[in-house]
Design a protein around this nucleic acid. Structure first.
Lengths: 190, 190, 190, 190
DNA sequence: TATGAATGAGTTTTCATTCAT
DNA sequence: AATGAATGAAAACTCATTCAT
């Protein structure tokens, strides 16, 4: 009773919402989301009591999805730089493969519908990634920075590069490489 | 002419729109903007034929405002690093002093109401700043990068740092300094 | 189905629209129509996606209503002239009894909101009546005319006479008789 | 002072209004009419105090224009039938040559913006034409009819035929001839 | 006299949410 | 639980008219 019955429907709503928010912004209508999810307008509110709830849950789901993709295959034994490059490449790959999800996150990121609590929760997942690099900080390879700034740097530079890729898809490798140079310079001691 | 269009009113509309977009996103209503600008609802459409026109003109006005602030007092004779630091500090100062304008630019940046043409025009102003650093590229102090990437890097890192300042205003100097280290690492050869 | 669309409400909307269009023209507001139909403003758009759709459907409904009234009680066995007189009288009676519907049809007839397709469909119903008089054409009693001209003649002469009746209701029988003479002269060989 | 200065401007407004009403109906905006007339929005109201005044004056001007065209070259000495044919042909020619004016009259005719007084005045001009046929009534060639019905018949049948011509312009002569047969049958004793 | 900026009521349409089925 | 009709408060935009210039 706490959670409604069909997990499948819930996911269909979130998926439809991601697409809709990506292309129309947070003002995408619940009617369109429901239709694209293959359910009735009213059913959406069985799973998410208000549109704001839906948007916040979508934000968290997308952040979790992104985080999982980035951490996948993390090479624990490699050098710090190689590990950073792994994170960078995974980020770029996820964004390149999931343009709608990326756009949706951007839209949600600037929307005041997403609460501070959701943002905090979303950030926490990435602190976890940051902690994978503890050794880099201790050894002095990575520059000491205010809390959360490393993952924020990762996010904004990734997003920037993906925007270039989006506008000029032919040069993806070029952007990815130049982007990593920028990124590594930004976070390492040199 | 019966009565010339009032530059003052036009500016009042743009100012009200910036505030409204900053706090409510691009879905801020024209009624609210007009009211805040101290004019009748219909008058807004005398100055901007559609809401989209208003949004695009606002985007350009904000970009121009930002650019002017950043370039002000540019120390032509200083070292490349000092010149970069000047640009960085001006950016941070502008953003810190104009939080609404900064938020409005972010909102407009992700909105599809802002046309590609406006984005191009907005970017052009910053290419101009980038060209102030030609010497840095020639001498090898700054890293060669794909076109427009330097100014994009400036923008996203500035924005990121301003976000930290926004959430923790007491530590502004701290963030500004750490931010510049990140920034300088990101753009220079090291 | 949650609740089926109510045929009753749909008809109430069409009826209210007919009255409103009759008295105010096609610029009658949807708000007024909805209110007169006893429903909320938004509900109108559940039944008719746009105002233009409503207007077109209203046109067709009125034409169908008129056609049904005209053909009612058609004396298949009577002489051609008597059959024509029947059609004439039914037309006059319908118009006299339904002044609002008649006015609404006139308004819609000159409006460019009513599509060519709707006009064609509306006309088709009357071609059907025209074909009831085939024998009259074959026998030479009725004059051979370009396609659709007989029903158009019926319509405009009926409408003209109804306009006289409208302005001078006391003489209805007088106008009806004089009108039929005009009509019969117009369509028969003599 | 009673009449504003420029007759030329007044006529330009009426001409622009006729075109605008023809294509957009009586809801054509005064702004568009003014623009098409080559004057400022406010100037229109120097010549016509309200839009309703403009519409009524337009109605009268168009009726007068039509009447003048129809009576032109009237063959006083010809037979009654020839004289009727002259009127018929002039009507068709005027309508065929002035489709916008014809459409404008139709729009105004069904609009409640045109007052009963204007309609009366407009009709009076045609009574004048009707009286040209006095001899036809006296001699019994034309059927006795209620007052104004002959000119009303002329108008509606002309309009009907012009509508056919409008939809099938290739057959203009065909429609004109068939139309006259209908018309002559409608008004003459036979 | 001619102009056109300014106005605010009015227009059609959208939409998150509710609730009868 | 699932549905989708019903709602009415916005939303963007239009327009006849006024009036300062």
């Amino acid at each position: 009773m706490a959670r409604p019955l069909s997990e499948e429907k819930r996911n269909a709503i979130l998926a439809a919402a991601a697409e809709a928010v990506a292309s129309l912004g947070v003002s995408a209508s619940t009617a369109k989301i429901a239709k694209d999810a293959g359910i009735a307008e009213g059913t959406l509110f069985v799973y998410f009591p208000t549109k704001d709830d839906l948007l916040n849950e979508l934000y968290l789901a997308l952040k979790a999805d992104m985080r999982a993709a980035i951490a996948a295959g993390y090479p624990t034994e490699a050098s710090v730089k190689e590990r950073c490059e792994h994170l960078w490449n995974q980020s770029i790959d996820w964004g390149a493969k999931n343009p709608a999800k990326r756009k949706a996150i951007r839209q949600l990121g600037v929307s005041d519908k997403v609460t501070e609590a959701s943002r905090k929760t979303g950030m926490a997942a990435f602190r976890d990634i940051q902690s994978m690099l503890e050794e880099g900080f201790r050894s002095g390879i990575l520059r000491q920075q205010p809390k959360d700034m490393l993952s924020a740097t990762t996010e904004v530079l990734t997003d920037m590069v993906l925007e270039f890729i989006h506008r000029d898809p032919g040069n993806i490798e070029n952007y990815r490489r130049a982007g990593f140079q920028t990124y590594w310079g930004a976070i390492s001691n040199n």
